[in-house]
Structure formats: C-alpha cells, structure tokens
C-alpha cells in the first residue's frame, strides 16, 4: 500500500487542511516512511483476535436525565471569532 501524492491530497481535503505542492511531496515522503514502519503489524497473526477499543473493560456508564446549569449566551459566545446577534457567524456554506 504505497502512499501516493494523490492520497495525501485526498486526505488534506478530507481533513480541511491546505498544503502547497512542495509540502505535498514532503508530507507524502514522511507519511510513507511512517506507514512503512507501521506495516510491521502485518507480521503478527491477528486472525482470531478481537479488536480492543478500550484499554479497560468498562461498560454501561449512564447519567440520570437531570438538568444541569447552562452557560449564559455571553459565555457561550465569549470565545467566538465572529459573534452576531446571539449566534456564531460563518461564511456562506455553498
């Protein structure tokens, strides 16, 4: 599974990043090296192994359906780059 520049460009788009053509070449090289290192995982036979998502065996953590205080609108918007009339303003979507 050799990583191509096209793969990197796809991932850049998917992750909402932006890179120059020069950077694409550099990142492709670096990521390919790392992936090559990662390939060693295939030396291990995992055909009968279940994936382990959580390091510890915990299940069923629930909270009661009880109200807790909200932030004020001012607090909610306190870090907003562009607040407008109680909302977060964003540039046009289409």
């Amino acid at each position: 599974m050799a990583l191509s520049e096209k793969d990197v460009q796809y991932v850049v788009k998917l992750a909402r990043l932006e890179v120059t053509d020069q950077e694409v070449a550099k990142y492709t090289q670096q990521l390919a090296n790392i992936l090559e290192y990662v390939e060693q995982l295939n030396k291990l036979d995992t055909s009968n192994v279940e994936p382990l998502t959580h390091p510890l065996d915990v299940k069923n953590v629930f909270r009661a359906d009880e109200l807790r205080p909200c932030l004020t609108q001012a607090e909610v918007l306190s870090n907003a780059p562009e607040p407008q009339s109680g909302h977060f303003k964003v540039p046009k979507i289409m």
Binding site: R16, E18, A80, P81, E82, F88, V90, P91, K92, M94
Partner: peptide
C-alpha cells in the same frame, strides 16, 4: 474549525475558511 473559538482566517466560503 474557526467557528466557535480559537483562530479564524477569513475565507470566501465555509470550506475555504476551515482550510
């Protein structure tokens, strides 16, 4: 993503702003 907190670099549209 520049919407709720932290850095925002303006963009023509949302995808450009994100990126």
């Amino acid at each position: 993503d520049g919407v709720r907190y932290g850095l925002r670099i303006p963009g023509e549209n949302i995808v450009e702003m994100y990126s």
